[in-house]
């Protein structure tokens, strides 16, 4: 009989022989933790959800990429994004203009959510990640409220929609190609780069490892 023992000491419940436990968030199966080698992964045997995926030098890489995202999003807001010309007239738009394009009446709500999803939430997320990860990676004790900050960064993750916005640009281009001539501004190329970095950055992030190191250093 090997019931997991409930202990009085703070800290997660352990197996009767002291092994640390991990539960699959998708299907609730529990396992004794086995940390895979760097570059490998640990998968739930029942539902195949990836539970642990450590990467070499993940901390430093995430910090570098997150800094890059912060700079690119900020720059992309102010530089011209797209330019059109038709019948001798032209117009250029920055991300800020696009995000605030719904001005009339109740459509302002769409404007607010567009700004949030393509600028504010991505920036908030990078700020939270830097706040949490920089002390941990440089061997300092975690920042104050690091747990709340990291949890928030996980909750808002689905609402940061930079990569979706980039595909939206492509569709918009085709839609007006017969109406006017289009040119790309510097911000457009920054955005393309940004999409690649966002995807790579998410691949490096192993939430279990971050939680573990936050706990170990507290």
């Amino acid at each position: 009989m090997q019931q997991p023992t409930l202990q009085d000491a703070p800290g997660p419940t352990r197996d009767s022989d002291g092994a640390e436990l991990i539960a699959c968030p998708s299907c609730d199966a529990i396992y004794r933790v086995q940390v895979p080698p760097k570059g490998g992964k640990a998968v739930c045997a029942r539902c195949k959800t990836v539970l642990i995926r450590p990467r070499r030098k993940a901390g430093l890489r995430i910090i570098a990429l997150t800094l890059a995202i912060t700079i690119l999003v900020t720059a992309a807001v102010f530089f011209p994004f797209l330019e059109i010309h038709a019948a001798g007239m032209g117009n250029r738009t920055s991300l800020l203009d696009i995000a605030t394009s719904f001005r009339s009446g109740i459509l302002v709500l769409v404007s607010v959510s567009t700004v949030s999803m393509i600028v504010l939430i991505p920036l908030l997320r990078t700020a939270l990640l830097l706040y949490v990860l920089v002390p941990v990676v440089f061997d300092r004790p975690p920042a104050r409220h690091a747990r709340e900050a990291f949890r928030l960064s996980q909750v808002i993750k689905p609402w940061a929609m930079t990569e979706i916005f980039a595909i939206g640009c492509a569709v918009a281009l085709v839609k007006i190609s017969d109406l006017a001539r289009l040119d790309f501004g510097p911000a457009f190329w920054m955005f393309c780069l940004l999409v690649v970095i966002v995807v790579v950055n998410d691949a490096y992030m192993c939430t279990w490892s971050v939680w573990k190191s936050l706990e170990d250093r507290a």
Binding site: A99, I118, A172
Partner: peptide, 22 residues
């Protein structure tokens, strides 16, 4: 999340295509 594409397209177009009467 990918369904938001259409909303973003509308946002891009209505910011960009403002050529007075043309």
């Amino acid at each position: 999340r990918w369904s938001m594409i259409d909303v973003f397209v509308v946002a891009i177009l209505s910011a960009l295509v403002q050529l007075s009467v043309v």
